[in-house]
Amino acid sequence: MQSITIRRAVAQDAEHLTALIQASGAYRGGYASIISGYQVTADYLARHRVFVAIDAADQLLGFYALVLDPPELDLVFVSDDVQGVGVGRLLIEHMIRQAEEAGLTEVRVVAHPLAERFYRRLGAERVGTVAPSPPKISWERPELRFTIAGRGAAEHTAVTATR
């Protein structure tokens, strides 16, 4: 795998994060309504723990957003070009460390139905479903939780990370 750095998102990243969301192949067709018109703003980046994964050429590979109150993994996106090579895993492992540092005991995830297996492979447990909320969301979504308390740092793969 190429060299990947995870760093805190800054206001100048907002447009690139929005573009990554809008380009996501997972949200084409019947799932497109959920991201229609969605924008990541500088204010959003300032209010939440948002981290980006970049390569050695400073290309955006993916990002996540952790909301602390209430604890929720609000957004996770990985560029279609690099899915399946471990970027998502690195982002989730980083998110878990951030949650530990913040003193969280669990983090809720309302997942895209196609992403449930990914989260479960990384340790999330399914705790239910979230009903549709038309008109934007006309399908059930899996509700999962990452249990944070008691996870040791030794479980996590080392990642080059800066704040």
Score class of each variant (00 low, 15 high):
Ala102Lys: 03
Gly30Leu: 10
Arg126Trp: 00
Leu122Met: 07
Val110Trp: 00
Pro113Tyr: 02
Ile96Gln: 04
Gln59Gly: 13
Pro132Trp: 05
Glu143His: 07
Ile96Leu: 12
Glu140Ser: 10
Arg89Val: 01
Leu61Glu: 03
Glu140Asp: 12
Phe77His: 07
Arg120Thr: 01
Arg121Thr: 06
Ala124Gln: 05
Pro71Glu: 01
Glu140Met: 11
Val52Ser: 10
Arg151Ala: 11
Gly25Lys: 15
Leu68Asp: 10
Glu72Met: 10
Asp58Cys: 06
Pro70Cys: 09
Leu91Ser: 02
Pro134Val: 09
Phe51Ser: 15
Arg145Gly: 12
Leu45Tyr: 12
Gly150His: 09
Arg89Thr: 11
Asp69Lys: 13
Phe146Lys: 04
Arg89Gly: 06
Gln83Asn: 09
Val85Leu: 01
Pro134Asn: 08
Ala99Pro: 01
Ala111Phe: 01
Gly86Gln: 02
Glu143Phe: 02
Tyr38Val: 08
Glu93Val: 09
Ile54Leu: 05
Arg117Ser: 06
Arg117Asp: 03
Glu72His: 02
Asp55Ile: 01
Phe63Cys: 02
Tyr31Phe: 02
Ala65Met: 11
Phe146Met: 10
Val82His: 03
Thr105Gly: 15
Asp80Trp: 09
Ala131Asn: 14
Ala115Ser: 11
Gly128Arg: 00
Phe63His: 00
His48Arg: 08
Tyr38Lys: 10
Ala46Gln: 12
Thr41Val: 11
Leu66His: 07
Ser138Glu: 14
Gln39Gly: 04
Val127Gln: 04
Gln83Ala: 06
Phe118Val: 02
Thr129Gln: 09
Lys136Ala: 15
Ala149His: 07
Glu125Cys: 05
Arg49Gly: 07
